[in-house]
């Protein structure tokens, strides 16, 4: 099974981009989808409207950073997707704390950005941009060519090696070029999956820098993917 990890600020167009990718694959390629959000997510209804039998899981992180939550549930999610017989698991994280990133040492880490979030937004997002393999720039239909090129340059300031794709996710324009990224992908090996970045200092085992995924390797955070409304609640 292959894995794609999507991160990016709220309303950047993550779901819109993912929908375009799934549209190119579904139903020939079996895709599973997981969303990790804070309190509210609308992806299930949205995706089910277009892809009736797509396996979908939504998980709420509550007061925990959604990227931390993704570390915890990732192993469960991979096992779930494999049970579903999926060939590709797409994970969408709300990625809000901007100090960590959900990308793993395998699969593809994708940051979704739009210039509408501000020209300097890539510089403010730290590892969410710098550790991504590719950047997808959305809403290019709303800006001029010159602005697109300047925004590209801003992303390059954060990461020289990142591969940048520009799309109009409403019409799906640009998706074909993005799909070429899937060709080179290899299957993940669950036993050697690790976080790419070092999470920031904090109080749980993820916060102190342990990179292993799954419940058995961590403590301080409480529930499992199955039946969890909120993974963690602060006082």
């Amino acid at each position: 099974m292959k894995l794609m990890n999507f991160a990016g600020p709220p309303s950047a167009g993550k779901t819109a981009v993912i929908k375009n990718i799934i549209r190119k694959l579904y139903p020939q390629v079996k895709v599973a989808y997981l969303k990790i959000d804070v309190v509210m997510a609308f992806e299930k209804e949205e995706l089910q409207r277009d892809f009736a039998d797509l396996p979908i899981q939504i998980v709420y992180a509550g007061d925990l950073c959604p990227d931390h939550a993704s570390v915890m549930v990732m192993k469960d999610a991979i096992q779930w997707a494999m049970r579903e017989g999926s060939e590709l698991l797409i994970v969408e994280s709300a990625g809000l704390c901007l100090r960590c990133s959900p990308y793993l040492n395998q699969g593809l880490g994708v940051i979704v950005l739009s210039m509408l979030g501000g020209m300097n937004s890539p510089l403010k997002m730290g590892p969410m941009v710098s550790l991504a393999d590719i950047a997808v720039v959305t809403k290019v239909d709303l800006i001029s060519q010159a602005e697109r090129e300047v925004f590209r340059e801003k992303i390059r300031e954060v990461s020289r090696s990142i591969r940048i794709y520009e799309v109009n996710a409403l019409q799906g324009t640009g998706t074909s070029r993005l799909m070429t990224e899937l060709d080179g992908m290899t299957d993940i090996d669950v036993d050697t999956l690790k976080l790419k970045g070092v999470p920031p200092l904090g109080v749980c085992t993820i916060c102190i820098g342990k990179k292993d995924i799954g419940w058995d390797n961590h403590f301080g955070v409480i529930r499992k993917l199955e039946g969890a409304d909120y993974l963690y609640r602060g006082e």
Partner: peptide, 14 residues
């Protein structure tokens, strides 16, 4: 290629 789009305002905050 250069394209001068139909847009009549910039969104770049610079």
């Amino acid at each position: 290629i250069v394209l001068i789009t139909q847009h009549t305002n910039f969104l770049a905050d610079l």
